[in-house]
Every structure is written in C-alpha cells, then in structure tokens.
Design a protein around this nucleic acid. Structure first.
Length: 210
DNA sequence: TTATAGATTGCCT
DNA sequence: GGCAATCTATAAT
C-alpha cells in the first residue's frame, strides 16, 4: 500500500464534534491532505491551537455570531479561513455540534508529499533534493506559511466541508505512532494570552516557534 | 466616515 | 531584535 492509498479517507464529522482541546490533541500526528488535480499535497500536523468560542476572548467567535465567523458556530468539520495583517490566510476547522462555537487553528505541518508544489506556491527555490530541514521548515512552519503552501484562501476554501469523501481538502488518520503532546500558551495573541491552549508534538523540528 | 488592532511574515540592523 | 507591508472587521467619531 502506497502512502497515497493511506491518505484517502477523511476523518468523520464525529471526530470534530467535541471540545476543541480534545480535537487539538488528537489532530497531532494526523495528516492534512490537499488534492490538486492529479497532484497530492500532504503534511503531518505538528502544532495547533484551540479557540473556545463565546468564553474565549481571543477567539473570533467571542462576541457572538457574525457573517465572518458563522462557520465556527455551524456544524463541525468545516474550514474557517480568515485573512490577517493584510497578508496571510489562517486555516481552522470548526468543532463542537452545530450551534456551539469552537475551532482549531493549524499552526505548523511537517511536509510529506508535494514538496516541489509547496515550494512553488510559497515562491521559494529549493536547491537540490532531498531538501534539508532548514529549507523544508520555510514551507509549512507557521499558520500563514502552511496556508500559502496548500493554496488555502478564503474564496476557495472557507466553509468547506472537510469530511466529504470527494473533498479536495481534508484530514486523515495515518499509521503513525501516537505522538508525545506538549501543551503551552498560544502564540501571537494579546487577549487571554496565558491560557494553555497550544498543542504540539514534543521535539518535532517543524513547529513554528520554540 | 475615519481610526485602529490584528490567531503573521520577511527583511533589515 | 525592530519594523514595514497591506487588507478587513470592528470600534469610535
């Protein structure tokens, strides 16, 4: 069985219909997949952050439902993509049952498949192959970077159902040993900055920051 | 209608 | 380590 065969089946909606902290922990070690025509992009999820909804001042859903954040209040397993600092997209998945707000932000991936395509999408020239870790880190180590590498935009991907069998964007399980999870404060926020809602694979080289 | 902060990144010193 | 880039949602006038 090839790696492509293993990366075929999206996680089901039930997986996402839980507390974002639980979903965050369990997403670590799984694989984000993008189908680009015949090409397949894949990256192991190594760093995420939970955003809790109405009771979390740092969450976009904190002040209640709006047109922008409606996905976070909707059914689980849908992508929430927003544009930040006039430059970057950030990619989240909605959690909790329909009507309850919550989500997980994808902060860093370890590139697995489609490395040349990711480099092209990022405007980076990789010299030689295989590329070293320092080069690969530039592709998907950071929320804006991974979105760009996977071609994730608001127009193309916001509100997309990530659990559909024919979706071009989804998360899948992989036969990868359960990672040792480390829990820290979230990065880059000013409100509720001390809550320990960032989750990462301990020791992984592809996390966005130490 | 105008002002400002923002779940970031890359370039410069 | 500092800071500009550059759009959008929301707050303030």
């Amino acid at each position: 069985m090839t790696m492509e065969d293993k990366l075929r089946t999206p996680l089901p909606r039930d997986f996402y219909a839980r507390d974002p902290r639980i979903v965050s922990r369990e997403l670590l070690g799984k694989v984000l997949v993008r189908r680009e025509g015949k090409k397949l992009l894949a990256g192991r999820i190594v760093e995420v952050e939970a955003y809790l909804g109405l009771n979390d001042p740092a969450a976009h859903s904190a002040a209640g439902r709006t047109l922008r954040n409606a996905v976070l209040f909707g059914p689980p397993g849908h992508s929430y993509v927003y544009f930040i600092y006039g430059n970057h997209y950030c990619f989240n998945v909605s959690c909790l049952p329909d009507g309850e707000a919550g989500g997980v932000l994808f902060r860093a991936l370890e590139p697995l498949l489609g490395i040349k395509e990711m480099a092209r999408a990022r405007g980076i020239f990789l010299d030689g192959r295989p590329s070293n870790t320092r080069d690969l880190r530039k592709l998907t180590s950071g929320p804006g970077r991974l979105a760009e590498a996977f071609g994730i935009t608001r127009m193309r991907d916001n509100a997309k159902d990530l659990t559909g069998a024919d979706s071009d964007l989804f998360i899948t399980a992989d036969s990868y040993p359960s990672p040792r999870v480390r829990n820290t404060v979230r990065i880059g926020i000013t409100k509720a900055a001390k809550r320990p809602l960032r989750f990462l694979i301990a020791g992984n080289e592809f996390i966005s920051r130490v």
